[in-house]
Write a protein that binds this DNA or RNA. Structure first.
Lengths: 113, 113
DNA sequence: ATCATTAATCGTAATTATACGATGAAGATA
DNA sequence: TATCTTCATCGTATAATTACGATTAATGAT
């Protein structure tokens, strides 16, 4: 079933193909998810409710977005019912940041006049 | 109408909100589009046909992907029928690279133990 | 004039994404 | 035990994405 938050196939920037990159970008392709990510980063840790209080979306929708972010490995979850604490997966995010930077820059280093 | 390749609202990294970021990430959220982008970067300039020859997708599909990449501002088009030459929008891509890097890093600079 | 090449667009089908309300599960508290 | 809070999941409706073949448009070559 599905890949957990710490998926080994995403650990090494150099083994990240177009498929893996697309998954990460897809997770970032929704404005609500970007806001959620920023909110978590700002508050370091937070639960679904705090985000629901701040964004104009239903709790079930937020929960679903959190799931997508988790499956892409961008955040981690720690559940102690009835609460779930979400936080940024810093290690992976840093790796993704580097990969993205390298990828985009590799598209720019030519001189097509 | 719609936004052309050099959309002023995307020119400044600091004015890029979650909505604008999501558009860029959405354009990058498809493996075929990543491959297309890499192919264009590798060959500096190329037409739809060269990409169609290399990817297992129909010409109409490639053309559609190119349109998405163009609307997101990642590539520019120069059409002299019956050809269209695509190339990387380096300036915008560099700006996007910086924005993405800054955004992802801003999510990592806390210490939530 | 006819044909070939290249690429955009249209129509369409299948899949995926997004959002919601309702429900269920887990534990804390009255 | 009954109630509250928090969150995940289910079912569902709507919209967007992805892909294809067919068609059209523009130009160059025969």
């Amino acid at each position: 079933m599905a890949n957990s938050s710490q998926d080994a196939t995403l650990a090494d920037p150099n083994t990240r193909g177009s498929q893996e990159m697309a998954v990460v970008f897809a997770a970032l392709s929704n404005p609500a998810r970007i806001e959620i990510l920023m909110h978590i980063a700002k508050h370091q840790c937070c639960g679904c409710k705090e985000i629901t209080d701040v964004l104009p979306l239903a709790q079930s929708t937020i929960s679903q977005h959190l799931k997508v972010l988790g499956e892409a490995g961008l955040i981690t979850v720690e559940t102690v019912p009835p609460r779930s604490r979400y936080q940024i997966n810093e290690q992976l995010l840093r790796s993704i940041s580097d990969t993205t930077h390298a990828f985009l820059n590799s598209c720019c280093k030519s001189d097509c006049s």
